[in-house]
C-alpha cells in the first residue's frame, strides 16, 4: 500500500489526486446507479473528500480503519484499487467481495480496511477490537473508526469509546459531521454544541476541525495517532463537512435548501486545496488538468473493468459462509449441481 503524507510535495499531490479520484469515482457511481447498472443503494462521499484523505494521509499503511455506509471515499483514501471497488459495486465476481458485499460492505482486511458498514454505529466496536488486537500483540499500528454524526447517538458507540479509553487502546474515533443524520439535521439528534464535546465523558481529547480543510484534518489525526502510539489512549475528532448529494442516490432532499448546499460548495475542499498548491507553486493549472485527466482515465478503466467482468455463478452463493463447509449449506450447492436448481427451496 502506497504511503503518502501532507508533509511532502509529492504527498500533497497524491492527496489531491486521491480527493479527485474519490469525486470522480462517486460521480460515476451515481451515474451508473441512475442508469440501473449498479443495483441496490449507493451513498456518495462527494463533498467530504478532505476528511477521508486527510485522515488516511496521517495513518500508516498497515493501520486499520472501519468505515460507514458512505465508504467509497475511505476506501480510496486508504489505497484500495478502484477497479476492484467498481467491480464490487457492479456485483461482479472480480470485486473486493466477489460480488457478495456491494457498496455498503467493501472490505480489504489485508489493506487495513475492515469494511464499509450498513449499520450506523457498528464500526467503532470493531475498531476498538482491532485496537485490542494491536495492543495485545504489541504491534506498531492504530485503529481508526470513521463514524457519522448520526452514529454518535448510538449506544454501541458509547460502549466502544468507553472501552477504548478505559483500556488506553490505540484507537481514534473520527466523526464526520456532515450536518445530517440521514434526513434529520444534527441539532435535532444531539444536545451537545459540538459532537467532540462528548469526548469529555471519557476523559479523552475531543477536537473539532474544519473538515473542508485537508491539512487541518491530517494534523488532528497525526496528533491523535501519536497519542495512541504513546499508549495514552484514543482521541475523538469531529470533522465538520458536508455531503453535496443526498443521503442516498434518489433522496429528494426536502430537508435542506439549495442555498445551503451552494454555500458549502463555495468552500469546496478540492478547490481550496488546489488553490493552495497553486499559490505555493507546487502545481500549475496545466498539471492540474493532467491530473484530472489521469483520474478520469483511471475511473473510466475501473468502469470498463467492472462492465467486462463476469457476474458470479449462482453456486457461489453457497461459498464463504464458514472456513469449512457445513452440510446445511452444501446440500443446496450440490442440489444446484445435480438438477440445475429447479427445486431450490424444496426440502427433498
Amino acid at each position: 500500500m502506497e504511503d503518502y503524507t501532507l508533509d511532502t510535495e509529492d504527498g500533497r499531490l497524491e492527496a489531491l489526486r486521491r480527493m479527485l479520484t474519490i469525486r470522480e469515482f462517486d460521480t460515476k457511481a451515481g451515474e451508473y446507479f441512475a442508469d440501473g447498472e449498479i443495483p441496490g443503494f449507493v451513498h456518495l462521499y462527494i463533498g467530504e473528500e478532505a476528511v477521508g484523505v486527510g485522515t488516511c494521509a496521517a495513518l500508516e499503511p498497515d493501520d486499520y480503519i472501519t468505515s460507514t455506509h458512505r465508504g467509497h471515499g475511505h476506501c480510496i483514501a486508504k489505497g484500495l484499487d478502484t477497479k476492484l471497488m467498481m467491480a464490487e459495486l457492479f456485483g461482479k465476481r472480480s470485486g473486493y467481495c466477489n460480488g457478495k458485499g456491494g457498496s455498503m460492505h467493501i472490505a480489504d482486511v489485508d489493506a487495513g480496511m475492515l469494511g464499509a458498514n450498513g449499520i450506523v454505529g457498528a464500526g467503532p466496536p470493531l475498531a476498538t477490537g482491532a485496537a485490542l488486537s494491536i495492543d495485545y500483540q504489541d504491534r506498531d499500528q492504530v485503529a481508526l473508526a470513521f463514524l457519522g454524526d448520526g452514529a454518535v447517538a448510538q449506544g454501541q458507540v458509547h460502549e466502544a469509546v468507553n472501552m477504548a479509553s478505559t483500556w488506553d487502546l490505540p484507537a481514534i474515533f473520527l466523526v464526520e459531521n456532515n450536518k445530517y443524520g440521514e434526513a434529520t439535521p444534527v441539532e435535532k439528534q444531539h444536545n451537545v454544541k459540538q459532537l467532540s464535546d462528548t469526548a469529555q465523558a471519557y476523559d479523552i481529547p475531543g477536537v473539532t476541525v474544519d473538515g473542508m480543510d485537508v491539512t487541518a484534518v491530517t494534523e488532528a489525526v497525526e496528533e491523535a495517532r501519536k497519542r495512541a502510539r504513546a499508549g495514552d489512549g484514543p482521541t475523538m475528532i469531529e470533522a465538520e463537512t458536508y455531503r453535496y448529494n443526498g443521503h442516498y442516490e434518489g433522496d429528494e432532499q426536502n430537508y435542506r435548501d439549495e442555498e445551503e448546499v451552494a454555500q458549502w460548495k463555495e468552500r469546496d475542499a478540492i478547490e481550496s486545496f488546489k488553490e493552495r498548491l497553486l499559490d505555493r507553486g507546487e502545481l500549475t493549472e496545466a498539471e492540474f488538468g493532467e491530473l484530472q485527466a489521469e483520474v478520469e482515465d483511471e475511473i473510466a478503466d475501473a468502469v470498463e473493468y467492472a462492465q467486462n467482468s463476469d457476474l458470479p455463478e449462482p453456486e457461489e452463493a453457497y461459498e464463504d459462509m464458514f472456513s469449512e463447509s457445513v452440510p446445511e449449506v452444501e446440500q443446496f450447492a450440490s442440489r444446484l449441481r445435480t438438477d440445475g436448481g429447479s427445486s431450490r427451496g424444496d426440502s427433498q
Binding site: L132, E159, M163
Partner: peptide
C-alpha cells in the same frame, strides 16, 4: 470488561478479524 455486551462482543469480532482469538 465493562458491562457493555454490544461493545465487547463487537470488539471481540473486530479483534478476531485482526489476528487474535478472543
Amino acid at each position: 470488561t465493562p458491562i457493555a455486551e454490544a461493545g465487547y462482543v463487537g470488539a471481540a469480532t473486530g479483534a478476531a478479524a485482526t489476528g487474535t482469538r478472543p
